[in-house]
Amino acid sequence: MEKLIDILKDLRPDIDIECQSLVDDGILDSFDIVTLVGELVDTFSIEIGVEDIIPENFNSVDAIMALINSKA
């Protein structure tokens, strides 16, 4: 979880990690998600497919963590 939060803060220094609507509120855009996914693949040694890149998987720290865990 801490690694993920570090990555998110690097990506968007002003990010509110409690936020439950990071994509819905436009805090993370498509470009952030592409960058984030690259970081996640590298950091957590997982594979992420196109079908995983949907807003629901990136709306909160918990959702992103759940995605990582499902790929581990």
Binding site: V37, G38, E39, V41, D42, E47, I48, G49, V50, E51
Partner: peptide, 10 residues
């Protein structure tokens, strides 16, 4: 999908 997954990295 598999080809894209292979490309997605930092």
């Amino acid at each position: 999908s598999a080809l894209i997954s292979k490309q997605i990295r930092k």
